[in-house]
């Protein structure tokens, strides 16, 4: 018993060392996920960002038609990386509404001219009101809304091609 106890501090130290090493080599996932997934979309109405497209409102969702909400900004670098993936979704027929954070019409127009325009509507969310109401913590983020106006999925950060496949599969299944 004594001999076992003698080794106990070293064993405890080794365990602690292992725990710290694990945290160092496999950092925890610090992504803040929305708690609104599986809940109905909250009420909101955003004015149009561009004169050529309508704004985004709660009333545009539901009615049996699933849609995507893409939270983005012209000043966001990962949004540029994401643009081709959104264009793929648009080409497949998925309707996408944009929620632009802290932005101006001129900057948005320039961003769309340069990176392509996948959006049917773009809402001007100047003060992040809708972004916060959705439980989104940054740009870009994408929400899949089903035909009954419920948030079914949240994709944090720029969409990857496997996530695009996942969206397409789910969207086709919901129609």
């Amino acid at each position: 018993m004594r001999r076992v106890l003698l080794w106990l501090p070293l064993a405890l130290f080794a365990a602690l060392f292992g725990l710290v090493a694990l945290g160092l080599f496999k950092p925890a996932d610090r992504t803040v996920r929305s708690a609104m997934v599986d809940k109905p979309l909250p009420e909101f109405a955003l004015p149009a960002m561009l004169p050529t497209k309508p704004g985004v409102a709660r009333t545009s969702f539901g009615g049996g038609k699933p849609r995507l909400i893409n939270v983005f900004a012209s000043w966001c670098v990962p949004c540029i990386a994401e643009a081709p993936e959104l264009m793929k979704l648009k080409a497949a027929g998925v309707p996408i509404d944009g929620v632009a954070i802290n932005d101006t019409p001129e900057a948005i127009q320039k961003f769309l001219d340069r990176n392509g325009d996948p959006y049917e509507r773009i809402g001007n969310d100047k003060a992040s009101q809708v972004q916060i109401a959705l439980g989104s913590s940054g740009v870009p983020e994408t929400f899949l809304i089903d035909g009954r106006g419920r948030i079914v999925r949240q994709y944090v950060s720029n969409l990857q091609s496997d996530q695009v496949d996942d969206i397409l599969k789910t969207w086709r299944g919901m129609r």
Binding site: S128, Q129, Q131
Partner: peptide, 23 residues
Amino acid sequence: CVECQGQAIADSNADIAGNMRSL
């Protein structure tokens, strides 16, 4: 603050923290 986690929104300079203070 959801962007600079570990800070409160009262101390954070992140855009979203400012917008949450406003809200």
